[in-house]
Design a binder for these strands. Structure first.
Lengths: 247, 247
DNA sequence: CAGGTAAATGCAGGTTTTTGCGTTTTTTGA
DNA sequence: TCAAAAAACGCAAAAACCTGCATTTACCTG
């Protein structure tokens, strides 16, 4: 067995069980404990696992760095699955940034063939992991806090596109429409909506009934409102008449 | 048996089993292990397989998000510091992708004010963490394996730029110049070099004296060659007359 | 077609990696 | 505090690797 192969198996074990024992690995891999220890040591040096006395632990097990993108993890996963049900083979899809969108990108089926256009480098990198997708990244000046490309160039470019679908991450949504707090982002979102035949607004229910400073669009421009709640939830009832479809 | 034919068989084997052993291949193909090794080496340089001690692995074998970005960590950090010493306040800097470039991006002083232009979303995201930098991300079709924007649009855009500096990640460099294995990337790199007053080539010494299929530029176009080695190292001696400055 | 050039391959050697095994040191838990 | 488990250290053998070189083969070119 190749060394790298063995180390990959160790990583797999750790991701599965969140921990491994040197003695266990020695048995299952048929190598001496010394070799296992050396492997664990190497992987630890490469920052892939956490070495402890007797074995090793998964890194994510006690890492605090990126909890923001797992905030409301369950909810966002439900939203992702609902949103994905609207995506069909061969579509051209415009998307903005946001952690909800990231959950969607991650949950896409790997055999899906489609074209995604996005101004978020983060989303683009998630999407490119799916080998059958074509990913177009819109460039421009990167916004420091939202981490997406903004500016006239992006808006111009979006205006040249006609997409089948757009998936909008939402920061504020109430009866009066969709709102946001950053002027540049609002411009981009307006352009996206304009360039797409069908508009999907995906958001956790927490953001419903909250309004921010700047208006993006009216609810009647939204074709689908997707939240983690069942479509007959009382929270959503009030939106029924304003939005075309609620999932 | 033809060389190409043999290499095709190797690829087939790897796709089938996710790995191959040099010794196995030597037997089944009826050639010496040296020849197998040379084949594997070539395929690895062309980015088709991953060469490891004892054989090779399929590229998709363990695509956990960020495994190889700590390879040669120490070396890359030295390179980063040397490279940074050439960056001055207010400069406009063009950069490609690559893990060495990523190490540089991470090591930048946080008070540096400068404009960075890149076609790599990964690098862009690293750079944007530095609050005083302006980051321009060049968009386009994302290349599946190199994870940078490629295509005519990117090249066109680069041609509109005049930068003070470009920092080139290197895949192959010998007396005859800088080489790479992907046609699209070569186009982008050529454009970058053309658009910059000063060209820096940063690479770990491992990649010196290795040549890939496609030529990017001659050494005389390179102003600074930066490696982790001290500038009077014998390995670098031979490059002294070809490159303007060696750090 | 002769002669020259370049590519491909195998081989000899020296070097580096990998691995297991004693031995010694450190950690852990009672 | 002590003994068992785990880790670290040093060593040696085997496997894999690299480098340079010689041989063969294919490919030009006049």
């Amino acid at each position: 067995m190749l060394k790298k192969e063995r180390q990959a198996l160790i990583i797999k074990q750790i991701n599965l069980h969140n921990k491994v024992l040197s003695s266990d690995l020695s048995l299952t891999l048929n190598v001496s404990e010394d070799t296992v220890r050396r492997d664990l040591h190497e992987l630890a040096q490469e920052n892939k696992i956490i070495k402890v006395h007797g074995g090793a632990l998964s890194k994510s097990y006690n890492v605090t760095s990126q909890q923001s993108d797992t905030y409301a993890y369950e909810e966002k996963n439900i939203i992702a699955l609902k949103t994905i049900s609207l995506i069909k083979e061969g579509m051209t899809i415009l998307t903005s940034g946001g952690t909800t969108m990231r959950a969607i990108a991650r949950a896409l089926p790997s055999n899906l063939k489609a074209t995604f256009i996005t101004m978020s480098p983060l989303i683009a990198l998630e999407l490119i992991e799916h080998p059958n997708l074509e990913v177009i990244l819109l460039g421009g000046k990167l916004s420091n806090d939202s981490k997406i490309s903004v500016g006239g160039e992006v808006v111009n470019r979006i205006n040249e596109i006609k997409a089948d679908l757009c998936i909008l991450g939402i920061n504020g949504l109430d009866f009066d429409g969709i709102t946001d707090s950053d002027w540049e982002i609002v411009q981009v979102k307006k352009a996206i909506i304009n360039a797409s035949r069908v508009v999907i607004a995906s958001t956790i229910s927490e953001k419903l009934n909250s309004a921010l400073r700047l208006k993006v669009c009216n609810l009647k421009e939204v074709d689908y409102l997707i939240t983690e709640l069942p479509s007959d939830s009382p929270t959503l009832l009030a939106f029924k008449e304003k939005v075309n479809h609620i999932l």
